[in-house]
């Protein structure tokens, strides 16, 4: 079973970090094959940022797919640019604080979470990506939740104060994701 995920948004929304955290945690805590591929342009800042994560129990071919099982859109331009790369029956994860445009596909599952607002509400505005990762894992079970918790512990090994708030943010997202699981 292979899952192709694309995460897209503005630079600064933690899009790359979210993908890397998921991929690295999976690499460390499981025997699954996993790739992380950042899409990069010539500009260093601004514009859209996106990355691909592929998780599979078989050897992975391309680390990029235009026929996705899962798509996370953190901003409006990403929705319009990439929505047609989602397979019928695929999961669209929407940052509903920012993305308010109507979604004109009825053959996909839409999971909404106002992650920008939620992050502000818990006084941790940078944690929107970790909340979204929780939503993603909650709705898909792409990897067990412990894998990500371990990954967060590992990522913040040198800044242990940040472990607790990030695990909390992740679990907040997890609940929202599970509630909308189809």
């Amino acid at each position: 079973m292979e899952r192709n995920l694309m995460i897209a948004g503005f630079g600064g929304q933690g899009v790359m970090t979210m993908g890397k955290l998921l991929a690295e945690a999976t690499s460390q805590a499981t025997d699954l094959n996993v790739t992380f591929f950042p899409s990069y342009g010539a500009a260093m800042r601004g514009g859209t940022a996106n990355c691909y994560v592929v998780i599979s129990d078989e050897p992975i071919g391309a680390p990029v797919s235009y026929s996705l099982e899962d798509l996370v859109v953190m901003n409006g331009p990403s929705l319009h640019k990439f929505i047609n790369n989602l397979k019928p029956g695929g999961n669209l994860f929407v940052n509903s604080t920012i993305v308010t445009d109507p979604i004109d596909r009825d053959d996909i599952n839409i999971i909404e979470a106002p992650v920008t607002q939620m992050a502000i509400d818990i006084n941790n505005p940078r944690a929107l990506n970790v909340i979204m990762l929780g939503v993603y894992v909650g709705a898909t079970d792409a990897v067990p939740e412990e894998v990500i918790v371990k990954g967060i512990n590992h990522k913040f090994e040198k800044k242990p104060k940040l472990i607790e708030p990030n695990v909390e943010a992740f679990k907040m997202g997890l609940e929202i994701g599970r509630a909308q699981k189809k």
């Binding site: 094959n33 591929f37 391309a62």
Partner: peptide, 9 residues
């Protein structure tokens, strides 16, 4: 550039 920029175990 794919293998150069992608991450893998």
């Amino acid at each position: 550039g794919v293998m150069g920029t992608m991450m893998e175990p």
